[in-house]
Amino acid sequence: MKKLINSPATVLADALNGVAAAHHELAVDFANRVVSRGAAVKQGKVALISGGGSGHEPLHSGFVGLGMLDAACAGEVFTSPTPDQMLAATMTVNAGAGVLYIVKNYTGDVLNFEMAAELAEADGVQVKSVLVADDVAVEDSTWTAGRRGVGTTVLVEKIAGAAAEEGRDLDAVHALATRVSENGRSMGVALTSATLPAVGKPSFDLPEDEIEMGVGIHGEPGRKRVPLRPASEIAEELVSSILSDHDFSGAPVIAMLSGLGGTPLIELYAIYGDVAALLEQRGITVARALVGDYITSLDMAGCSLTLLRADEEMLRLWDAPVSTAALRWGA
């Protein structure tokens, strides 16, 4: 294992230290591993909190700031944060208008955010949660833990964040976040496995000439393992899997092509060109697009495609000012 770290045991603490050093506008609570906006909370604004295992950066701490999250809880690598972290974040950013938890659908995240919500409510804070479960690679959601939460999370954080910034109440922000979550779909592909710092070797074996179609962001297996193929054919598989799962016709679409951490931007743009062409061929209008590393899986090579069936309101909120470490425009 070759990694730019001091030691596997300190990688998360070291990274939080770096976040604090690089972004003076953020507040980092090292004991609770919570990154929040440094500015005083805006009284009466619904607060948005997300969190999850580390290793998916910039998700979630990279999306803390004006127009997106109020706080992010960082768990150990690929491990959900704990209820006490979430409770600390809740107490830090609650501004009297309630708190929305944005939760990716993994057993650990769901259980810990549930416990946190119970604790926060016992302390008199109103909490609502939105679950993101957008990974179309999981076909059998009855006999599994359900669809995994992946790229749509970023879009929920942006759009619901803008709505909260406008001063909407918790019910309205929750309803909007739910609508975004329900209308987003994603699918990923891995060219290589990720290597966890604490483990030191790849999480799964993927032969040099094979790819995992439908991989999860922790290296969960996808739909199938197939021979390596040109980007255009991979794009075709991702696009058709997503389009056959949800109706994207006749609506503006927000597309996000995210790298998984180990793939250069030139390749991401190359495959995005193919994705855009395929969508155009099928009469889908991409109104906004985002290409880059937004939800990653450590050093995994590959990408994930997320499409959101948007509407005018979502587009307006998407365009609203945002000022975070990883997403910044109009502010």
Partner: peptide, 8 residues
Amino acid sequence: TVGGASGS
């Protein structure tokens, strides 16, 4: 301290 599903 455990985190994940196991902790809860």
